[in-house]
């Protein structure tokens, strides 16, 4: 690690820290119930809920801390939390 004056770091380098290990409950989605309100995408503190036209709503389990906000805010009751066994 090279030390620099004033502790400068390169942008977005925290992505090396995979926070998925913090999780005890894991979000799952029933795609048929999703009404594309995007509350989950808007309110995810980790930016771990993503959307693509092909896959619909999906989760980045590398970073999801399992807080459950996506499930709580889901208008279509499509997202539910499950106990994760590791």
């Amino acid at each position: 690690m090279k030390l620099r004056i004033g502790a400068i770091a390169d942008p977005g380098t925290s992505v090396v820290n995979l926070t998925g290990g913090w999780r005890t409950e894991i979000p799952r989605i029933t795609p048929e119930l999703c009404i594309r309100c995007f509350n989950c995408v808007i309110y995810c503190p980790e930016s771990a809920v993503k959307y693509s036209d092909k896959e619909g709503i999906y989760f980045d389990y590398d970073y999801c801390k399992g807080c459950g906000i996506c499930s709580n805010e889901c208008s279509g009751h499509a997202i539910y939390m499950e106990m994760e066994e590791k």
């Binding site: 977005g12 820290n17 995979l18 808007i42 503190p45 980790e46 930016s47 807080c67």
Partner: peptide
């Protein structure tokens, strides 16, 4: 989303501030 606040930050799960920064 533009994702200008990268994942991997150390905020507690469910942090209101992390949502705020992302939206700002």
């Amino acid at each position: 989303m533009k994702n200008l606040f990268a994942s991997g930050h150390r905020a507690c799960g469910g942090c209101g501030m992390a949502i705020a920064i992302k939206l700002i």
